[in-house]
Amino acid sequence: MADGGTTSTDLHGAAGAAHAGGYDPMAAKMGMWLFLFTEVLLFGALFIVYGVYLHGFTWQFQQGSARLSIPVGAVNTAILLTSSLTMALAIAALQRARPARARRLLFATVGCAGAFLVIKAFEWAGKFAHGVYPGAAFLLEQSKGEIVFFGLYFTMTGLHALHVLVGVPVILWAGRRIRSGAISPEHSVFLENAGLYWHLVDLIWIYLFPLFYLIS
């Protein structure tokens, strides 16, 4: 296949370029995608668990879903989608050699992430206040399928929120590296990879939202 051809020549042009940190954005991007594959399958396994129990406990899952607030979920979806837009625009701005604008858009992305997490925290706190958390006496009295539903809800949205949380310092760091010039229109792959990660976080939420909030 052709993809190995051109850049390998470039890399070997400078002696031991790979060892000296030779810049190959395609390699970095490919590595990032492969890492994202592992993330997809990490969540993918949980989606299989979800599917199996939805199949077995359809009615109980609908009951559990009715306890979740659709407006809250929808607002959070819109926030994450918007953060994905600002992320994509930040990369576009950098490529057009407008680093200040790129940094502003990155801060907007972080702002969206913060808003998402705050809303999520209030949502979880509300559930806890109503006695809906793993091992709670109230939840244990509900139908068995609902226990599993909320077990999955907390596991999956928790793992997702963790990924949002990890994304924040990564994006802030990218912003810092734009200011220091380490990320430039010619060397933008760090930012692009941060973007790929962020879009994946968004993508997972795109599935989480209907599966948990919209099946009642």
């Binding site: 190995g4 790979a18 390699a27």
Partner: peptide
């Protein structure tokens, strides 16, 4: 390790 090998085979094979 696997990730590293896949990218290496794709990107660093001599032309």
């Amino acid at each position: 390790t696997g990730l590293n090998f896949i990218v290496t085979v794709h990107r660093l094979r001599v032309p």
